[in-house]
């Protein structure tokens, strides 16, 4: 192993780590005003901390009315997708030092879904699109084995990438087609359809493909790659959509 001497992280932590940062946050509370406004907050923060830590400092020390969703704080639960410096990210997976803290850090709700308060949006249309693609394994029950169904490691690998989705909506709410037309299923729903279409155990691929062949389905994708850039789990979203398109043409999957 590498000799455990003072490493980079520890050396950095020895000096005073704090810097002054401005958070510029899009505020909206219909109980107070119908208009959304920008509000600036200045705070002292260690640049190795997360944007979520900054939001917590504001809420806990400066303004308790600031409202956002969060839970696990390390990129697994998918609660805190927001638009940070114009890009969709998870606040808990974005470190201050990685987004140029010299300038004000802008934080807005994700786009394309109705804002309810500050950074909280209505997620129902997003989850409805997810439910519409039948996101569950469908098999012919007569074949049910007593033990597990067998699946080769290669067949398991075929859909591994799309099993990583945490339904945070960062992809869907980065998609210009979704912004312009709320009827479009959006990338996340297609990713979750892909997860089953390419699972060798599933027997309803044709049905899901027909759903996605709809006018609001997969053909609306304009391949802008915003979704792939936005995905905090590193899923190749655009590639998954392309694979679904190809399966629709060849009917092979």
């Amino acid at each position: 192993m590498a000799t455990p001497v003072l490493d980079k992280v520890e050396a950095e932590s020895a000096a005073s780590p704090y810097i002054t940062v401005t958070f510029r946050i899009r505020r909206f509370n219909p109980e107070v005003s119908a208009e959304a406004t920008w509000e600036d907050f200045q705070l002292e923060i260690d640049p190795k901390e997360r944007v979520l830590d900054g939001l917590h400092k504001i809420k806990w020390e400066l303004d308790g009315t600031l409202t956002f969703r969060r839970s696990c704080a390390h990129g697994i639960c998918g609660s805190d997708a927001m638009r940070i410096n114009g890009k969709n990210r998870l606040a808990c997976k974005t470190l201050i030092k990685d987004i140029n803290p010299e300038k004000p850090i802008t934080v807005e709700p994700i786009k394309g879904l109705t804002v309810l308060k500050d950074l909280v949006v209505d997620m129902e249309p997003f989850f409805q699109a997810y439910r519409d693609v039948m996101p569950f394994l469908i098999t012919k029950d007569t074949n049910e084995p007593t033990r597990e169904r067998l699946q080769s490691a290669e067949d398991r690998e075929r859909f591994d990438d799309t099993t990583k989705c945490i339904l945070c909506a960062a992809c869907t709410s980065s998609c210009p087609v979704f912004w312009n037309d709320g009827q479009y299923f959006g990338p996340a729903a297609i990713v979750n359809a892909h997860r089953f279409i390419f699972d060798s155990r599933d027997e309803a691929g044709e049905q899901r493909l027909e759903i996605l062949n709809d006018k609001d389905g997969v053909w609306r994708c304009r391949t802008t790659f915003n979704c792939t850039d936005a995905c905090p789990r590193g899923i190749e979203v655009t590639k998954a959509i392309a694979e679904v398109k190809k399966a629709l043409i060849t009917r092979r999957f």
């Binding site: 597990e148 067998l150 398991r156």
Partner: peptide, 20 residues
Amino acid sequence: SVLDLEKMGLPFNRTPDGTI
């Protein structure tokens, strides 16, 4: 319990034989 989850669709890692 594990077999139920597999039947519900859980993508377990597999052995070379295709079992969990």
